[in-house]
Nucleic acid binder design. Sequence first.
RNA 1: UAAAGCAGCCGGAUAAUCGCGCCCUAUAAGGUGAGGAAAGUCCGUGCAUCCAAGGACAGAUUGCCGGAGAAACUCCGGACGGUGUGAACCGGUGGAAAAGGACCACAGAAAGAUACAGCCUAAGUUACUACCAGUAAACGGCAAAGGUGCAAUGGCGAGGUAAGAGCUCACCGACGAUAUCGAGAGGUAUCGCUCAGGCAACCCCCAAUCGGAUGCAAGAUUAAAUGGAAGGUUAUAAAGGUGUCCGCCCACUUCCGAAAAAUCGCUAGAGAUUAGGAGUAAUCCUAAUACCAGACAGAUGAUUAUCUUGAAACAGAACACGGCUUAUGAGCUGCUUUAUUUU
Length: 118
Amino acid sequence: MLPKEYRLKNKAAFSATYRIKNSFYKDGIVLYAGKLKADNENPTRVGFVVSKKTHKRAVRRNRLKRLMRESYRLMLKNNETGNAQNYMSLIFVGYEKAVGKNFDEIQNSIKDLIMRLK
RNA sequence: UAAAGCAGCCGGAUAAUCGCGCCCUAUAAGGUGAGGAAAGUCCGUGCAUCCAAGGACAGAUUGCCGGAGAAACUCCGGACGGUGUGAACCGGUGGAAAAGGACCACAGAAAGAUACAGCCUAAGUUACUACCAGUAAACGGCAAAGGUGCAAUGGCGAGGUAAGAGCUCACCGACGAUAUCGAGAGGUAUCGCUCAGGCAACCCCCAAUCGGAUGCAAGAUUAAAUGGAAGGUUAUAAAGGUGUCCGCCCACUUCCGAAAAAUCGCUAGAGAUUAGGAGUAAUCCUAAUACCAGACAGAUGAUUAUCUUGAAACAGAACACGGCUUAUGAGCUGCUUUAUUUU
């Protein structure tokens, strides 16, 4: 898990991020990027979403969210997030295709998505 | 030894690295952190808010007996019926002539009153041939044997008869009465001017019980903010609320937009574990012990290695509790039954 200050929290922030429609797709994962930062006071906040429509079982959804979150956390720790830190918020949405993949596959997808941010 | 039946257990472990929620201290360190079903949301409760004067009419639930339990489409023990060689298992199990209605697909003549194929080798009336006698032609009698169907008006045998029929009789079954045993459901025995399609998981009847609605996104407090549109307004109150109607309550109601923060509710309990006692059991009583998730975009994780047993199944708390139902890998334990072999 990420510390609290790195998490995207309320509904308004989520809808604000979606509204910008700056998205990228890779192997069942979609990345939405929010506004560019005005200053560097707050860290980039990240949300992870797997809808109930994607998969019925909570255990599988949790697994996908945790893998995505862990991938991002490790990148953050190793300072590999690159341009991602210029954005106020990021949302990763997992879809059916990504359910059941292992850690390496998820991490590659996340890495690829982040590299595409400018 | 094999195949079954029932009950129960387990629900991965260890190490390393990197992490998260909550508690406590306060950068650290420490403690603690999903389930047997947390699931489905099918029952029942607690708790919360709103409504509920009353009348009439509706409504809901339950349905063999006894017990347990806060209650339950709950549990335990028993009765009865059914299935199985058996251990055992299954059963929403009051009332279907003596209240009433509806329905009973297909097939079949007929699924509430019927005769398709038949029988009545001629008993009755008629007809035909002159009588006797013959003829199932008409009236009529029959429902036993045939076919259909889940089901055809209790089964089977004998008597009886023109042929037949509980028409009569024996045995069995059902129903009722009496006696007796039992706490009771019921069991047993005897008797009878008794013999009646099914369906009440359709309405209905009977008996018993029940304030209702909405669910923790309930709801309470604090802080902040309070724009627009439509309708209503001193009353016959439209809308709204109360199961319906009457009645009653309410001066604001509905929709859209914006903003959506913190605290409480929130986890010490119809709890848990252990021991003892009562009881066939469900369960209850007593004592001791410890405090054992509480998030709010929502923690309980990721990777690697080794091992069990191979690559660990089903599956993730969201106010809480009691049940039911469904899902579940590999393995283990106990008791019981049947079959076979040996002694």
